[in-house]
């Protein structure tokens, strides 16, 4: 099956600064992929490259097997909800739908109407008068009614309160279950991503640090503690390490469970894995 995203040596430079470099990435179809990383790590740049809003400085990127935004048919297959839930404050909800219908050849008016009805949104309301949660839901409605094969969402829940955030993710997951499209979504909220995502892409300092199935990442990362020692167990790659005078605590990646005597191994949450990887390159640079 054609990957949803296939990037090779992908890089983007603004002036002298590389916002993204040397990115090799392949996201299989049918995933809800979470894109995480510190601010300035290149998440928005990568998403803009996926959406065809930017042209790469180096390398190539294919989305659903074609160059992004290459032809109108390709544009119709990919939905993009940029940061700050893009709606037009001066336009009404109904005008947003008419715009969506006009711009998108595969527009599904029934889906849009049904979602508005359940959200309790009126066609006559202006977007500028909606709450943040409602605006986000309106932007999501436009993204879903476009009936894309891939929906890209840049920080869709960042500005929302916890209830609106949960409602947004409920609506998104329901739409994924119903229409079976792929998702790439960036967020800082790791606990949300742990529920929603089955694929994780982590960018740190403009580079790809980790990409993989969430299930596999959880099954291959271990937190191990033991009497202080410098050498990790055999076959384990150390992601983060801290030592006291007597004890060592390591977060390691290992294909097989750690069963060396003297080490106590436990499983870690996705949040811990992400945080450990985020800290790693910074440490290497500092060393």
């Amino acid at each position: 099956m054609t990957p949803v995203i296939a990037a090779k040596g992908l890089g983007m430079r603004y002036g002298r600064r590389w916002a993204l470099s040397d990115c090799d990435l392949e996201i299989p179809p049918g995933r809800v992929a979470g894109l995480v990383g510190p601010n300035g790590a290149g998440k928005t740049t990568l998403m803009n490259l996926m959406a065809g809003q930017l042209t790469p400085t180096t390398g190539t990127i294919e989305v659903l097997g074609s160059r992004p935004a290459d032809r109108p048919e390709q544009l119709a297959r990919v939905g993009f909800v940029a940061q700050e839930t893009p709606t037009y404050a001066g336009l009404t909800v109904g005008e947003h739908l008419r715009l969506g219908a006009k711009l998108n050849p595969r527009w599904d008016q029934a889906v849009a109407e049904e979602r508005l009805r359940r959200l309790g949104l009126d066609h006559g309301q202006r977007a500028g008068q909606l709450s943040g949660g409602q605006r986000a839901q309106l932007a999501l409605t436009l993204g879903i009614a476009k009936r894309p094969e891939l929906l890209i969402l840049d920080e869709p829940v960042a500005a929302l309160d916890p209830l609106a955030r949960r409602e947004f993710l409920q609506a998104l997951m329901e739409a994924v279950a119903e229409h079976a499209f792929s998702v790439v979504m960036s967020s800082h909220l790791l606990a949300d991503l742990e529920r929603v995502c089955d694929y994780l892409v982590l960018l740190v300092s403009s580079r790809l640090e980790v990409a993989g199935e969430v299930e596999e990442l959880l099954a291959t990362h271990w937190l191990i503690t033991g009497v202080r020692r410098e050498d990790p167990p055999e076959g384990a790659e150390v992601i983060s390490a801290s030592h006291t005078g007597r004890q060592s605590t390591l977060l390691v990646r290992s294909a097989t469970p750690i069963s060396e005597p003297g080490w106590l191994a436990s499983q870690v949450s996705l949040e811990d894995i992400v945080l450990a990887h985020m800290g790693r390159p910074a440490l290497e640079v500092a060393a």
Partner: peptide, 15 residues
């Protein structure tokens, strides 16, 4: 699956 994910906001594959 749709009912569960709409309620819990989890990935459909989990269900």
């Amino acid at each position: 699956v749709k009912e569960v994910v709409a309620q819990l906001a989890i990935n459909p594959n989990t269900v």
